[in-house]
């Protein structure tokens, strides 16, 4: 059985991947600031999804939440990978402007990362998902909150974020 589980990759993975990959990268990038690191997170998320039995109709919400959590986990554990390593794995030639841009963006995003890492997890995830374009209803479903409390959670997160960034 263990062997069977190892190879059980769901059949709709490629279809779901092509449809949702950019959105998943975007969610992770809001947390992490840089695209290369966000793409690492997206790979992790889709590997997990490939082994899951999440219904295809719920894939979008599941992937967004997973991307937010995984990216926040990266923040807290301080894991990093170099852009060069990613470029080699993905078969893309490394271009200097990409690397420079990513480094600059990460510098600018440092304060935001710290502020996000300091927020309670539910607030941080709600904040990232709403600013990634999920509706209040989608965020509520994803976090198992009532739609009414999404606004409250978001309000608290944004007030805290702003305070943190202005200190």
């Amino acid at each position: 059985m263990a062997d069977r589980q190892l190879h059980a990759v769901r059949g709709d993975l490629e279809q779901v991947f092509r449809r949702h990959y950019p959105a998943v990268v975007a969610v992770a990038a809001r947390v992490l600031g840089g695209r290369a690191e966000a793409e690492d997170v997206a790979q992790e998320v889709f590997l997990s999804f490939g082994r899951s039995t999440v219904p295809a109709g719920e894939a979008g919400g599941w992937l967004s939440v997973a991307a937010a959590h995984t990216a926040l986990n990266h923040l807290r554990s301080g894991r990093r990978r170099s852009d060069r390593e990613v470029a080699v794995v993905s078969g893309e030639p490394t271009t200097v402007p990409d690397v420079v841009d990513d480094v600059l963006a990460r510098e600018a995003h440092g304060q935001v990362r710290a502020a996000l890492a300091a927020l309670p997890r539910t607030q941080a995830v709600a904040l990232v998902l709403r600013h990634s374009g999920l509706s209040y209803a989608d965020v509520a479903t994803a976090l198992d909150l009532s739609p009414g409390s999404v606004g409250t959670t978001l309000r608290r997160a944004e007030a805290a974020l702003r305070k943190e960034l202005h200190q």
Partner: peptide, 18 residues
């Protein structure tokens, strides 16, 4: 603060990687 520039991902290359 949460604005990103992750707007030009290469989906086919990313699928190859996965």
């Amino acid at each position: 603060a949460l604005r990103t520039r992750a707007d030009d991902v290469d989906v086919p290359a990313a699928w190859d990687r996965l």
